[in-house]
């Protein structure tokens, strides 16, 4: 059973090695810039900012 735990540990360590380097790489290479554009990425020409995209048939404004 300890073999299983050790194997899982090594696999997960190997799978995640360099993550700290990856982070500092990403931070210094402008991966976190232009966050405003990121926020707007859910919109497009057909459903642009300013256009609500959910409406329900309402004859009157009851809840």
């Amino acid at each position: 059973m300890f073999v299983a735990v050790t194997v899982i540990l090594i696999v997960m360590l190997l799978g995640s090695v360099g993550a700290l380097f990856a982070f500092s790489w990403a931070a210094t290479h402008q991966q976190f810039e232009n966050l405003e554009a990121a926020a707007e990425s859910i919109f497009d020409a057909d459903e642009p900012i300013g256009k609500p995209t959910d409406n329900f048939i309402t004859d009157s404004h009851e809840s």
Partner: peptide, 19 residues
């Protein structure tokens, strides 16, 4: 995070905060 801004048609208030 997808539906609220999408429905009201406004981007999320602070993307930085969401990160």
């Amino acid at each position: 995070y997808y539906l609220i801004p999408k429905i009201i048609g406004r981007p999320i208030h602070s993307y930085y905060l969401s990160v």
